Amino acid sequence: MTEYKLVVVGAGGVGKSALTIQLIQNHFVDEYDPTIEDSYRKQVVIDGETCLLDILDTAGQEEYSAMRDQYMRTGEGFLCVFAINNTKSFEDIHHYREQIKRVKDSEDVPMVLVGNKCDLPSRTVDTKQAQDLARSYGIPFIETSAKTRQGVDDAFYTLVREIRKHKEKMSKDGKKKKKKSKTKCVIM
């Protein structure tokens, strides 16, 4: 069974824990209790493949930012979460993405942009803004509501699919490099 290491990042209060708990335990946590770091595991079937999701729910508070490099190193894919009623959390996505790329030393890291709290009427981040940002990053965008469960499975499952595509691409690139290195030079 394939294991996928997913990391949920975003500013404090955007609903990272609520999304994760909704996926794992099928219930909505409405009281806000700032996370330092929590880890969850769940076995699911995605596109006919049974897999184990190892999900790291991270601290959004700035005082825990020193811990970010460590979990970013171990993560295979990242859910970059903002709240649709919090423009600052949307603007912060850029910083999370840049930090992930720096730590992973790669421009090509599996990510999904997630606009959470889409059940709320007080939207300050337009869907088109988020779609445009995701398009500019070359990553999928999904709106979710941890409260109603809308888009929750889709967000995590899409990230797994992005990781699969990335692994497939990397193995193809690896095979191309191996083929090239088999060419021999004969000096007579």
Results as ranks from 00 to 15, higher is better:
Ile84Thr: 15
Glu107Ala: 13
Val114Ser: 02
Thr74Phe: 08
Lys104Leu: 10
Arg123Tyr: 12
Phe82Gly: 15
Val125Ile: 12
Cys118Glu: 08
Val103Arg: 05
Cys118Val: 10
Met72Leu: 03
Ser106Ile: 11
Thr87His: 12
Asp69Ser: 06
Asp108His: 13
Asp108Lys: 09
Tyr64Ser: 00
Phe90Gln: 14
Glu107Val: 13
Ala83Phe: 02
Ala66Thr: 09
Gln70Trp: 11
Val125Gln: 13
Ile84Gly: 15
Val114Tyr: 02
Asn86Asp: 15
Val112Asn: 00
Met72Thr: 04
Ile100Leu: 11
Pro110Lys: 03
Asp92Leu: 07
Gly77Val: 14
Gly75Leu: 02
Asn116Lys: 00
Met72Val: 03
Asp105Pro: 07
Asn86Ala: 06
Cys118Met: 11
Met72Glu: 02
Arg97Ala: 15
Leu79Glu: 00
Glu98Gly: 04
Ser106Asn: 13
Asp119Arg: 04
Lys101Arg: 12
Leu79Ser: 00
Ser65Arg: 08
Val112Cys: 04
Asn86Leu: 02
Ile100Ala: 04
Asp105Ile: 08
His95Lys: 14
Lys117Ile: 15
Asp69Phe: 01
Pro121Phe: 11
Val114Gly: 01
Gly115Val: 12
Val114Met: 08
Phe82Pro: 00
Glu91Pro: 04
Ile84Ser: 15
Met72Asn: 03
Lys104Cys: 12
Asp69Gly: 05
Glu76Cys: 13
Phe90Cys: 10
Asp92Ala: 13
Gly115Ile: 10
Tyr71Leu: 01
Met72Arg: 01
Tyr71Arg: 00
Leu120Gly: 14
Tyr71Asp: 02
Val112Pro: 01
Gly77Phe: 08
Lys101Gln: 12
Asp108Glu: 11
Lys104Arg: 14
Lys88Leu: 11
Gln99Arg: 05
Asp108Val: 08
Pro121Gly: 14
Lys101Leu: 12
Glu76Thr: 14
Thr74His: 07
Arg97Trp: 15
Ile100Cys: 05
Ile100Val: 06
Thr87Trp: 08
Pro121Met: 11
Leu79Asp: 01
Ile100Phe: 06
Leu113Phe: 14
Leu79Val: 09
Val125Trp: 11
Leu120Thr: 11
Arg102Asp: 06
Glu98Thr: 06
Arg73Tyr: 08
Pro110Tyr: 01
Glu98Gln: 07
Ile93Gly: 03
Ser106Tyr: 13
Arg73Leu: 08
Val109Arg: 03
Val103Asp: 05
Asp108Ile: 06
Tyr71His: 01
Gly115Tyr: 07
Ala66Lys: 04
Gly75Ile: 03
Leu113His: 01
Met67Ile: 12
Arg73Thr: 09
Asp69Ile: 01
Gly77Gln: 00
Leu113Thr: 04
Glu63Thr: 06
Met67Leu: 14
Thr74Trp: 13
Val109Lys: 02
Cys80Leu: 14
Lys104Asn: 14
Asn86Cys: 08
Ile100Glu: 00
Pro110Ala: 04
Asp126Thr: 09
Phe90Arg: 08
His95Phe: 05
Lys88Pro: 12
Val114Ala: 04
Glu98Ala: 05
Asn86Ile: 03
Asp69Met: 02
Val109His: 03
Gly115Pro: 06
Gly77Cys: 13
Val112Lys: 00
Leu113Met: 09
Glu107Asp: 12
Ser65Tyr: 07
His94Thr: 10
Gly115Thr: 07
Phe82His: 10
Lys88Ser: 13
Val125His: 12
Gly75Cys: 10
Lys104Glu: 04
Thr74Gly: 13
Arg123Gly: 15
Met72Gln: 04
Val109Thr: 08
Gln99Ala: 09
Leu113Arg: 00
Asp126Ile: 08
Leu79Ile: 11
Lys104Trp: 14
Phe78Leu: 03
Cys118Gln: 14
Asp108Tyr: 09
Val103Ala: 07
His94Ile: 13
Val114Lys: 00
Val125Arg: 11
Glu98Cys: 04
His95Cys: 07
Thr74Ser: 11
Phe78Trp: 02
Tyr71Lys: 00
Arg102Gln: 09
Asp126Arg: 06
Pro110Ser: 04
Ser122Gly: 14
Ser122Pro: 10
Cys118Asn: 10
Gly75Val: 06
Tyr71Glu: 02
Gly75Asn: 07
Gly75Asp: 00
Met72Lys: 01
Glu91Thr: 07
Ser65Asp: 06
Gly115Ala: 14
Ser65Lys: 09
Asp69Asn: 05
Ile100Asn: 03
Asp119Lys: 05
Thr124Tyr: 11
Gly77Pro: 01
Met67Gln: 00
Asp69Ala: 04
Asp126Phe: 08
Cys80His: 05
Tyr64Asn: 02
Gly115Cys: 13
Val112Ile: 10
Gln70Met: 07
Pro121Trp: 07
Val112Trp: 02
Asp119Thr: 07
Leu113Gly: 02
Leu79Asn: 00
Glu91Arg: 09
Asp69His: 04
Phe90His: 07
Asp105Trp: 06
Arg68Asn: 03
Met111Gly: 01
Asp69Cys: 02
Cys118Phe: 12
Glu98Trp: 02
Arg123Phe: 11
Phe78Ile: 03
Pro121Ala: 12
Ser122Asp: 14
Glu63Cys: 07
Phe78Asp: 01
Glu76Arg: 05
Val103Pro: 01
Glu107Pro: 10
